[in-house]
Design a protein around this nucleic acid. Sequence first.
DNA 1: AAGTGGTCTAGACCACGGA
DNA 2: CCGTGGTCTAGACCACTTC
Lengths: 235, 235
Amino acid sequence: MRSYKDIHNILLDRIKSGEWKQGALVSSEADLAREFGCTRVTVNRAMQALADAGLVERKRKAGTRVVQRMTRNAQFQIAIVRHEIEQRGGHYKYLLICREETKPPQKIQAEMSVSADQSVLHVLCLHFADGKPHQLEDRWINIDTISRARAEPFDMISPNEWLLQQIPYTNAEHVFRAAQPDDQEIEHLQLSRDEPVFVIERTTWLSDQAVTHVRLVHPANSFQLVTRDQHADLL
Amino acid sequence: MRSYKDIHNILLDRIKSGEWKQGALVSSEADLAREFGCTRVTVNRAMQALADAGLVERKRKAGTRVVQRMTRNAQFQIAIVRHEIEQRGGHYKYLLICREETKPPQKIQAEMSVSADQSVLHVLCLHFADGKPHQLEDRWINIDTISRARAEPFDMISPNEWLLQQIPYTNAEHVFRAAQPDDQEIEHLQLSRDEPVFVIERTTWLSDQAVTHVRLVHPANSFQLVTRDQHADLL
DNA sequence: AAGTGGTCTAGACCACGGA
DNA sequence: CCGTGGTCTAGACCACTTC
């Protein structure tokens, strides 16, 4: 029992078990170092890991406190649609419906913070799973930021896949909701009347420049978003 | 430019800018230490932070590589419904509809891995925002794991709030989907016909014991789930 | 065998912030 | 002021993995 990872786990257990209660002050690094028979640096390394995980808050002189958590975090993944479908043994098909450079509607302009006269690349396409429409992708790509996109026809590879592979981003915003589909969505997704849709809207930025905004529409009857978090509490 | 955080940021920039490409091998710690005029330990600290963030993969002898990412992570928060509503200036109301100890239906038994003869605490309740139904909470609590729940009437405080404040958990599973409401949901949520609902189902575990399973149903017209991630790529 | 990361120690100095 | 965390250095040894 000497490595900082061991110590990290011991301290983690003390928090999880409630031995160290929420909001409580914990022993100082020096004390813990004595207790574990190691250097203060080693304890510090373990404590910093806990602090990075957001489980404790540390202040000089004031010491280290277990965080009082009112919210918990959980993660989800942004994956390539083709991979998701193929991974569960489905047959994937891609269809480009429309690709154009155009001035976006106001809503998109605002969302992506582009000026009124700026052209944005608009791509509308469909992802099929086993022959059935799975996702309608309605995407806007900022060609000022991502000029490479101008040369990409998106007839064989979807913007989803192309962007995820090539373009990094630093910030993202997601909106999830249920909705009644409009006529265009009913047609493309071959929806029965009354079937709702599950909508994801995502905008991503690289530093403070918008990269892309996308609206992903799925038939409610054949789509759900699933996440599994280990140590969800510890993110 | 000497602290490990500075070095971390410099290396981060090299990855973000593409100077260090995805999949590429990066300089060894010893080389970087020479370059930055510091100890190898300091470089190591910075590199470990990148590795923790999942941006690089490190192997002894093989060296450090920038990760080729096929998926990106993003986070969302599990908050107390009352806080969410009050935070945006809304008026919150809580209504307990039903509280009983009973044997759950098979679906819940399976989801929570409880045996067929085991009683589970079932709570059905409603959260209102500004007088309008906001969320129908249909919850099952494992009283073997959380025996304290037996003594809690849940007439003043919702299970959502009680659990989030008191009960830690280590694993969580979420399912999000759009659906057409059933009759009970239409009644409790005062839905107009044709209005879909946004459903979240969450099961949480403490180690490998199920803590609770909950189905949260929201009117689609007045609900959306929003997440904002800084450094979404770097989680 | 040799190169690379993983980690520890001992000692040091600094920075912050509560008393 | 002075206790607490934050970090660096120098040197060391180990563990893994490729060659």
